[in-house]
Design a protein around this nucleic acid. Structure first.
Length: 332
DNA sequence: AATAGACATAT
DNA sequence: ATATGTC
């Protein structure tokens, strides 16, 4: 979903220290490549950001889930001195700065960034002079570096949605297209566009012997004019770039989903992450296993049974006895 | 102990 | 065929 952002609440009383934790998180992800420390710092930042008062001491913070001795100590240091020595020294390191810049290119992760920096490539300008060191995805990421950092206003996504529907309906009127993500949750702007597509003829059975008429490749061909670059296309997932008039280029993902799995996928890709976790936990309490593909009853043996037939998002809520939430009520 | 899986690329 | 990297 999104990068390093907190559930954007109006007033975060602990914003300063949260920023410190997020910087530490970024460092652990990009430089030391310790995902678990990265997640730990992020979790702590999220917990602090949801408080309605400014935290006064490490001891007080330790009561919160996700904050232990180490972060408590850092909080005390930050409250006393207004900074964190560990972070100060990290930020002085030029290689760290370079790695953090390069990982902002789509397709360049921590490993590739470190590799580039080791060979003396440290800036976006350097990348432009060394395209031969990049694979296809990374070249696209570089080409649209500035555009991809811009958010996409809601009205623009609405326009793209209409266009995608118009173009795929030319193949078959029976296609169903849903743009998910934060757009579906009603947000004013999004980071990218995530379109889910299904069709009555695209089912688990027919998908096996491949329905030549309704492939993702065919769909993408029909999006000519809108889609201007392809990062990757497989049988189920397209990753690429689209553009409207003279506006910035936008990241577009399209997934082709078998009909039986469509609503579970729509639910999952609409999020938010937090909402999904809540809903999956609730499903478990009711004896169901919910994931991106299906809702299945869990028997006494603990083994999930056959997927429950689902023909709408509402069905999923109803089966697990969870009050229906409109997409715009799922922001967490 | 910590999210999972599609796709690209290298070997 | 498998491992690695990224999303």
């Amino acid at each position: 979903m999104s990068k390093l952002s907190l559930p954007s609440n109006e007033k975060n009383c602990n914003a300063d220290f949260c920023k410190v934790l997020l910087d530490l998180a970024e460092y652990e992800k990009n430089v030391t490549r310790n995902v678990h420390k990265y997640n730990a710092y992020k979790k702590a930042a999220v917990v602090l950001s949801t408080l309605d008062h400014k935290i006064q001491s490490g001891d007080e913070a330790k009561k919160l889930k996700g904050i232990g001795d180490k972060i408590a100590k850092k909080l005390d240091e930050f409250n006393e001195t207004g900074k964190l020595k560990k972070l100060e020294s990290i930020n002085l390191n030029e290689n760290v700065k370079s790695i953090n810049i390069l990982t902002r290119v789509s397709g360049i992760g921590p490993v590739k960034a470190a590799d580039l920096v080791r060979s003396g490539i440290k800036t976006i300008e350097d990348l432009k002079n060394n395209e031969d060191k990049l694979n296809h995805h990374q070249r696209i990421g570089l080409k649209y570096f500035a555009d991809f950092e811009k958010t996409i206003p809601r009205n623009e996504i609405q326009e793209i949605e209409v266009l995608i529907k118009t173009l795929v309906y030319k193949i078959s009127k029976k296609f169903s297209v849903t743009i998910c993500g934060s757009y579906r949750r009603g947000k004013a702007a999004s980071g990218d566009i995530d379109a889910l597509i299904t069709h009555p003829k695209i089912t688990l059975k027919q998908n096996r012997n491949k329905n030549e008429k309704y492939t993702l490749e065919k769909i993408v061909e029909n999006l000519e004019g809108l889609v201007i670059d392809t990062i990757s296309v497989g049988e189920t997932k397209f990753m690429g770039v689209c553009i409207l008039r003279g506006l910035p280029a936008r990241r577009l993902d399209i997934r082709l989903i078998p009909l039986e799995q469509f609503y579970c996928a729509v639910l999952y890709f609409t999020g938010s992450d937090v909402f999904n976790k809540q809903m999956r936990a609730h499903a478990l309490e009711k004896g169901f296993m919910l994931n991106e593909y299906s809702l299945r009853h869990i028997g006494v043996t603990g083994v999930p049974g056959e997927p429950v037939p689902i023909s709408s998002e509402e069905d999923i809520f109803a089966y697990i006895d969870f009050p229906y939430k409109q997409p715009n009520e799922r922001n967490y």
